[in-house]
Design a binder for these strands. Structure first.
Lengths: 110, 110
DNA sequence: ACATTATCTATACAATATAGAGTAAATGCT
DNA sequence: AGCATTTACTCTATATTGTATAGATAATGT
C-alpha cells in the first residue's frame, strides 16, 4: 500500500495492457491484449481480481461506460492508470533494469 | 510448477541477482546485491524462502561451500540458476518485452 | 569451553494469482 | 411486454508467492 511498493508480476502485465489500450481498456480487451501479445491464457476472473486490487491501491481508476450500439451486452467498466500507477510501473521497471543491465546471458529488454 | 510458468516479481529479482553474482551467490550476497542495486530493503528470511521455492521448482540449485578463513561464520550455501531457470527468466522477459514495446509513456528498459 | 560472528532454518502470516460459476445489463424479436 | 441472446462483470474459493521474526547451527579465536 505504501508508496514504495512494486507491482506484482501479473499486476505489471495488466498495467502495461491498460497503457497500450488507452481509452479502450476494459476487462475483455485487457484479457485479449495479454493473450495476444504473450500467448498466455488468463481467466477473466484473474483479470478483474487484479484490476480491483490495483484500484484499491490507487494505481488505476475505473469508470462505467455508456452502452455501445452493438447487439447487446452490459455496459463496460473502463480502466485507466493513475499518476500513482505510473510511478509504480516506473519504479518496477527501474528495479528490473538495474538488476538486468550488463547481464549478457539474458535476452535484453530493448 | 509447469514449464509455462512465469517468475513472480521477487523471484525474478532474485534470479537476476544470482546471474550477476555468478559463483559468489549465497544468501547474504544476494541480499546485498538487491539492496544495493534497487534500494529495496529485504529481510534475509524473504531471500531464503524464495530461494527454497525456486529450488523446489528446479529453477536454481544449491550446494554447500567450504568454510572460509574468516573470523567465524557458518559455511555458505551457494546457488546457481539451472537451464530450466534460464528458460523461465527468458520467458518472463519476453512477455514483459512484448507488453512494453512501442509504449513511449514508459521509461524504456534499454 | 565459551563468546563472537556469520549464516541458515522454521514458522507464520499477508498479499497476489488463478479458476470457474454465477449474475447483470443491454438489445432484438415475437 | 416477455424472453432469448449477447456481452460483460461479480463473487467465492483456493493455491501460490512474498515477507518478517525468531531461533538454530557452524566456524573461529581466546
Amino acid at each position: 500500500m505504501s508508496d514504495r511498493d512494486y507491482l506484482g508480476e501479473f499486476e505489471h502485465i495488466i498495467v502495461l495492457a491498460l497503457l497500450r489500450l488507452e481509452d479502450r481498456a476494459y476487462g475483455v480487451t485487457v484479457r485479449q491484449e495479454i493473450e495476444r501479445r504473450t500467448n498466455r491464457e488468463v481467466s477473466i476472473g484473474a483479470i478483474y481480481a487484479t484490476l480491483d486490487r490495483l484500484e484499491a491501491k490507487g494505481y488505476v481508476k475505473s469508470r462505467r461506460g455508456d452502452p455501445t450500439p452493438e447487439r447487446g451486452g452490459r455496459s463496460k467498466r473502463f480502466f485507466r492508470v493513475t499518476a500513482k500507477g505510473m510511478t509504480a510501473v516506473n519504479r518496477t521497471h527501474r528495479a528490473l533494469h538495474r538488476m538486468t543491465e550488463g547481464l549478457d546471458l539474458i535476452r535484453s529488454y530493448s
